[in-house]
Nucleic acid binder design. Structure first.
Lengths: 111, 111
DNA sequence: TATACATTCAACCAAAAGGTAGAATATATT
DNA sequence: AATATATTCTACCTTTTGGTTGAATGTATA
């Protein structure tokens, strides 16, 4: 029953290739901000901002050790998103065949 | 396989409650732009723009009959998104238990 | 203590998103 | 022919996004 804002944030965070790449990197284990940023052409600051978006969506968690910030991937929002999308597909009928859909639409038009 | 841009567009389109509501409406069958817009407080123009975003993501299809534009829901991009997210969860291990993850992270830190 | 390193903060910029209002276009209806 | 309806187009505005650079902060290290 999470507020829709949560889903908004999760999907928005996932809708960017840089952020997906960051998550993929973190899925292999913790990493520091600098290490996460290293493969990208953009500035460290830009990556830092992407990380913030991921944190806001709770897809990334931060653990500070001295001057290092260790980032880790959190799967919960992904699970929630997967749940929503599956629920949705079930109810919105990606399983509807063409005939069924046609009938419903004719019905809707004959009002 | 589909360009990442496609996934970007799908997830971005879904990351908005108005657009999800529009899709939900269309999942019950075709509807005209005006009818789709009716329940919303925002202007018709604003809804028209949201529809454009959904069309760009191929989540909505348009069929013109005279002055009416009939919109319908297309499930394919949802299927693709669901597939991506499931794939991802599988490989990124939402199934990883805490111990496994810890081991991988210690390993990563001991380099 | 001085210096290097890890990270964010602040200011700025361009582009995109999300909204508005009004004009334009195309099609129905009287 | 005149009018009403459905929809988009254009222009505009504000906020957000994604990026830059340079300064500030906090923590190690020589």
């Amino acid at each position: 029953m999470s507020a829709p804002r949560t889903l908004d944030r999760t999907l928005l965070a996932l809708a960017d290739p840089t952020r997906r790449a960051i998550l993929q990197r973190l899925s292999a284990g913790e990493a520091r901000v600098t290490d996460v940023a290293e493969p990208f052409k953009m500035s460290l600051n830009a990556v830092s901002k992407h990380i913030l978006v991921l944190e806001r969506a709770k897809l990334v968690q931060r653990r500070k050790v001295g001057r290092d910030h260790f980032l880790s991937y959190r799967a919960e929002p992904m699970d929630a998103a997967a749940h929503w999308i599956e629920q949705t597909r079930h109810f919105w009928g990606s399983r509807l065949d063409a005939l069924e859909r046609l009938l419903r639409e004719e019905d809707a038009n004959n009002k």
